[in-house]
Nucleic acid binder design. Structure first.
Ligand SMILES: [Mn+2]
Ligand SMILES: [Mn+2]
Ligand SMILES: [Mn+2]
Ligand SMILES: [Mn+2]
Lengths: 239, 239
DNA sequence: ACAAATTTTTAGATATGTCTAAAAATTTGT
DNA sequence: ACAAATTTTTAGACATATCTAAAAATTTGT
């Protein structure tokens, strides 16, 4: 009886030790979603927020959260939302790293434009191979930012701090450089292409209209008027 | 009643027209397996052969075959095995094309060796994006063969005919060039690396031993003896 | 404080893909 | 030709991931 118990414990430890750590694409997407919601939030992530982000139902989220909690990837208390554990955070950052490296690859070498890369990167980010990620990073010459200006975590998971000034907060007569986009929707990116606004563009704020928070800016000699909706989605750095 | 029937038929046609054509990775792997077994066979592919290739059970294969048959990707008659339809064949070839293009990419740009690429290509081949495949092809400068010497189907699904002479069938005193490997297992590829046998290597058959079908060959000035197991897995072209 | 609104969880279904065991059909050997 | 061996299919489970509807818990508003 006692011998049997020891045997059982030994088997449990062994299965823990050899536990398959490979996650499904779905599990990876949940971790990524929780991570990205956490970034703009200093409390536990709600079931509904995850459901909305992943375009699924709250009930499905509850199920998955339980599974991730079992695997020690999230801390979860019923009705209290979730937070990633260190283990969960590490995995989320790895996937984000892969996503952004692939986006750089697609733009740099395969003639994709910045509004075409996301969908494909969503698939590529789940390919499992440490060597692949490392070599891709080397091949791309260790890029620090993706085509949307988002920082690429390094091999150890360290992420450069993202510029957090929005164009909307820049004062009249002040100049700045476009560092990134907050919204990566095709429609926004195509609007920017059209307005000739790119990463690195120098923008001069000519005039701010208090009534609707729109602003008139000057970019490469040309002047144009942009709505608040646009200016609050552009990360910039003051010059 | 009759009006209702018409409505129903209309809905059916519509759902056929808009039917999601995206296949799961599993479905794609079945098509690829059936295709590759068909190549070395001029009759219908057996349930067991597929099961063995995919390391699954015959009963699972029967289930999947029914599903693929529903989708008109295979012709299937109970107990008679399956054959790909034109539609099924096209999809299989597309996946093989992607697999081999990715293998070229990994070797050419990411410092993978020919024994490391297969596992990763098995994942990459399922990424869905026509543009990705086209641009990758262009970027690689339209390669015709993968790192194992296998032909890469072109955009229209056309495949160059594979060299079908094996080194084992070459006569004494005859020289030939290594064109491909029949077996792509790590152990075989590593053996070849060790023996300094690569695609393009010029091989001179010095002597054939009738007893065990081994042969002594000369390659880059060095002589070595290789077993029948080796020589019958090397595609060559007589000089 | 407590009723109403909202969020979250549970219960029960469905769809995909897998498995084992048993039944059915086909092929093989004499 | 027909019994035995082999192959294939069916039946019934199970695991993952999803959904709807209803129940339970929490939060909000007065
Ligand atoms: Mn993206
Ligand atoms: Mn991005
Ligand atoms: Mn391969
Ligand atoms: Mn290959």
């Amino acid at each position: 009886m006692s011998k049997n118990l020891f045997l059982q414990i030994e088997i449990m430890s062994l299965s823990l030790y050899f536990m398959k750590t490979e996650l499904s694409q779905t599990e990876e997407n949940y971790l990524k979603a929780i991570f990205s919601i956490s970034l703009s939030l200093n409390k536990a992530v709600s079931t509904n927020a995850i459901a909305e982000k992943l375009k699924t139902k709250a009930s499905s989220v509850t199920d998955m959260i339980k599974k991730l909690s079992e695997k020690n990837l999230v801390d979860y208390k019923k009705y209290q939302g979730v937070l990633l554990t260190e283990k969960g955070k590490k995995i989320a950052v790895k996937i984000i790293r892969k996503h952004r490296l692939w986006e750089v690859f697609l733009v740099k070498y395969l003639d994709f434009s910045w509004d075409e890369v996301h969908e494909v990167a969503e698939q590529l980010e789940h390919v499992k191979s440490t060597k692949l990620t490392q070599e891709l990073d080397r091949y791309l010459e260790y890029p620090t930012h993706d085509p949307h200006g988002d920082p690429i975590p390094d091999e150890n998971g360290k992420i450069a701090h993202h510029s957090d000034t929005m164009l909307s907060s820049i004062k009249e007569k002040q100049a700045c450089i476009v560092m990134g986009v907050k919204d990566s929707s095709t429609s926004f990116l195509k609007y920017l292409d059209n307005a000739n606004i790119k990463l690195g563009s120098v923008v001069n704020v000519i005039e701010k209209v208090a009534f609707d928070d729109s602003m008139r800016i000057e970019i490469q000699g040309a002047q144009l008027s942009i709505s608040h909706q646009i200016s609050k989605n552009l990360f910039v750095k003051k010059i």
